[in-house]
Nucleic acid binder design. Structure first.
Length: 595
DNA sequence: CCTGATGCGTC
DNA sequence: GTCGGAC
DNA sequence: GTCCGACGACGCATCAGG
């Protein structure tokens, strides 16, 4: 065994000091103000802890793609707070409903800690690094008794913290800082701190998009300056942030938004985004959020390995569950069965997957990011033929809007989700991490005539969190089963409301509020809103699709223990003209689903 | 050994 | 994933 | 137009506790 003296970098920024910056950031909605606060923070940060600080700002403790999971959510956190601050579980629940933020709750409680929980995590001074270490310890705890150890480790951190620090420790555990600061704002702040102005963000953004690690970019910038950052390049086995698509509500907008005459119209599959890295004979797969999912799709690994004619390559595409005997796509829920750790081979046979490739980002040592769409996809077609489990994404190239629509209709009739329209202009580069108008999605569910619009009865509500504190976060919605004269849940609904509507909701619904669950409402055990409402108020709700549900009771099948649920529900408008019996009926919903 | 609660990640 | 608000 | 943070359904893994 080798011992060596490590020169300990004494970077001992008090966590409390960092929390002052958090507080200032949270106090404003002006991005420019945030950026100057961030710039000041970064200028005062030691280069050894600027990475942790960057992660903290966006509510993480490491890069997204590193397999570090806290394993503590709301429930465990509540329990830890209760333990550390000696507050009854019921008090915590009640306060949480009121405040909508467990961090605020932990900050509010007055408590001089009796217990220190030092046997779980010893703290002499609560520095930034100490908090980081504690959070990593929680993430690394597993196995028997792990929940107790995690709770007590967090309790140790809380016991060593002042009120304000408790707020942000809790928010870090939950991964929600609610500062109004996201990754792009952090990059602006870094640019302002080290390069003079937020306008100098582009090279940082590029490094981030290619490395997917904001802490790394921050640290390289602090240590080696812009030169160091510019050396960060696309690399095999390091996932890059996938390019995303904008959406459009009318197909005619595609023509206005896309900057090239010729538009590539690609099939859009309802599957899972996968970035494949081929490194000689080795293949690794990464998900949309850059988690490694290589082991989940052996057939894709094999296909990329055998049918991609390149020594090294990075491909972008969508894995879609495919029924080879019927020659049709399986619904999205099927591919979710493939997100597993066990019985992989069995499920690979039951639910095979086709990897539909639409882009080539890297080949044989060269980045293709700065090649245009046509160049990239031509090469992609050259190295990739059509095989069982891998194929290039179907597409047409056209400058004609009618042809786009025709192709879209054709895709819908073949069971696809819609199309993605892409620019073919000379600067149609692969813009890692960007959601821009060079890629536009047009889904069937955006077209009103193809989407499911339901009039549903409000039967419950859930307390809002964060900026929804004090009002409702979501509403429990039900259909009317006219045969049995009962109401059956279809979805919770938490988006589509304006702030104004949201603010007046409690008042508007107060006349229907009830202490008990309505007698004629059927629910499963998993559905337990904070407030019940007697069926009275009707609202129009739009969704993209009706799916089989284990939690919603609409058209409940006792044998399968499944009902119907609405995917992507959003509020459209109030329907004061409708009585609850005039709401969409369960049988109408069944008909919608059948087609 | 099984089940429900909880967390996490896909869309 | 969808959506609305702030800039 | 961009960025951020509210919120949705659903499936698998893990752990606690019977």
């Amino acid at each position: 065994m080798q011992t060596r003296t490590i020169s300990l970098t004494v970077s001992r920024l008090e966590f409390k000091t960092l929390c002052n910056y958090f507080t200032n950031l949270e106090a404003t909605t002006k991005r420019n103000e945030m950026i100057s606060t961030l710039a000041e923070l970064f200028q005062n940060s030691d280069e050894e802890e600027i990475d942790s600080i960057s992660y903290f700002l966006v509510g993480d403790i490491t890069a997204d793609y590193k397999e570090v999971k806290l394993g503590m959510g709301e429930e465990m956190t509540k329990s830890s707070i209760s333990l550390a601050l000696e507050l009854g579980e019921d008090d915590v629940d009640e306060k949480f409903q009121e405040l909508g933020d467990l961090g605020d709750l932990a900050a509010e409680v007055e408590h001089g800690p009796e217990k220190k929980f030092a046997e779980f995590f010893e703290i002499d001074a609560l520095t930034v690094e100490k908090v980081h270490e504690g959070l990593l310890k929680i993430a690394n705890t597993s196995g028997e008794n792990s929940q107790e150890i995690m709770k007590k480790t967090l309790a140790a951190l809380l016991s060593a913290a002042d009120s304000c620090s408790r707020r942000y420790i809790i928010r870090l555990v939950l991964g929600q800082m609610r500062l109004g600061v996201g990754d792009m704002t952090v990059l602006d702040g870094l640019a302002a701190a080290f390069l003079g102005s937020k306008d100098d963000r582009p090279p940082l953004e590029h490094a981030y998009n290619v490395s997917s690690d904001i802490g790394y970019v921050a640290q390289i910038l602090a240590k080696s300056g812009l030169e160091g950052v510019k050396r960060i390049r696309v690399a095999i086995n390091r996932p890059l942030r996938p390019q995303l698509a904008q959406r459009v509500d009318k197909i005619t907008e595609v023509r206005e938004k896309i900057d090239s005459d010729t538009i590539s119209v690609e099939e859009k599959y309802d599957g899972e985004r996968i970035q494949a890295h081929k490194d000689g004979g080795k293949v690794r797969l990464f998900s949309r959020r850059l988690n490694e999912i290589t082991h989940q799709f052996p057939e894709i690994v094999e296909s990329v390995s055998n049918h991609v004619e390149a020594d090294s390559a990075i491909l972008d595409g969508e894995a879609v569950a495919y029924d080879f005997s019927e020659k049709e796509y399986f619904p999205f829920q099927k591919i979710m069965n493939r997100r597993r750790k066990y019985d992989i081979e069995e499920y690979a046979e039951k639910i095979p997957v086709k990897y539909m490739v639409f882009d080539l980002v890297y080949k044989n040592g060269s980045s293709y990011l700065r090649k245009n769409y046509i160049e990239r996809t031509e090469e992609m077609h050259e190295i990739l033929g059509e095989h069982d489990y891998i194929a290039p994404t179907g597409r047409i190239l056209t400058d004609n809007l009618d042809e786009i629509d025709e192709y879209f209709q054709d895709c819908i009739s073949r069971g696809l989700e819609g199309v993605i329209c892409k620019s073919t202009s000379s600067n149609s580069y692969y813009r890692a991490g960007a959601r821009e108008w060079s890629w536009i999605k047009w889904k069937s569910s955006y077209a009103s005539e193809l989407s499911d619009t339901l009039d549903l009865v409000i039967v419950g509500s859930y307390a809002g969190k964060g900026k929804r504190a004090g009002t409702y976060g979501s509403l429990l919605c039900a259909s009317y089963n006219h045969e049995e004269d009962i109401y059956e849940t279809v979805c919770k609904l938490g988006t589509g409301f304006t702030d104004e509507l949201l603010a007046e909701l409690p008042e508007k619904l107060s006349d229907a509020q009830s202490d008990k669950k309505p007698a004629r409402l059927k629910t499963t055990e998993n559905v337990e809103p904070d407030t019940w409402f007697t069926p009275k108020h009707v609202i129009e709700v739009k969704g993209s699709e009706l799916t089989e549900s284990p939690v919603h009771t609409c058209n409940w099948d006792p044998e399968k223990e499944r009902g119907l649920g609405l995917r992507f529900p959003r509020f459209i408008r109030w329907r004061p003209d409708k009585s609850p019996e005039q709401a969409t009926t369960t049988s109408e919903i069944v008909q919608m689903r059948e087609g």
